[in-house]
């Protein structure tokens, strides 16, 4: 009655993405890298283009502004805003963990969830203000 090697849940699992059970801390760790990558490539490219267009004068700036306020431009800007806040809050969590705090399972999970909720609320609040009050 031998079957496939049975999995004994009391034994440790090897660390591989497909085997880990998803949890908030794992999601936040991955998001930290992905948002960091997005901010590096899209964020810094946009910051540089924005500064160059201001330096070149009103006509170049108008080109930048028309792209930035187009539907795709707004999508990218809102996405980068969320990426910034997620990376910001998750970064704060990393700094807390760097001093050796926040490793208790419940605290760690709570902090991870807080970064996700915090980034979504901050992004929604900022863009509600920009599109609702400013525009």
């Amino acid at each position: 009655m031998s079957s496939a090697p049975s999995h004994n849940p009391s034994r440790p699992l090897s660390p591989h993405l497909g085997i880990w059970r998803w949890g908030p801390h794992m999601l936040v760790s991955i998001l930290h890298r992905v948002t960091g990558g997005a901010l590096t490539i899209a964020g810094l490219a946009l910051l540089t283009w924005w500064l160059m267009s201001i330096a070149e004068g009103p006509e170049d700036y108008a080109t930048f502004a028309s792209v930035a306020t187009s539907p795709i431009g707004l999508f990218v800007l809102i996405g980068l805003t969320w990426a910034f806040f997620q990376h910001f809050f998750s970064g704060l969590r990393h700094l807390v963990m760097d001093i050796g705090a926040g490793f208790e399972l419940a605290t760690n999970k709570r902090m991870a969830i807080a970064t996700i909720i915090g980034s979504l609320i901050a992004t929604a609040a900022l863009w509600a203000y920009i599109l609702g009050v400013r525009a």
């Binding site: 810094l44 500064l51 330096a55």
Partner: peptide, 13 residues
């Protein structure tokens, strides 16, 4: 390269 362009733009402004 990227930071040089950004800083040049800022200096020009």
């Amino acid at each position: 390269l990227g930071s040089a362009f950004a800083l040049f733009a800022l200096a020009k402004i």
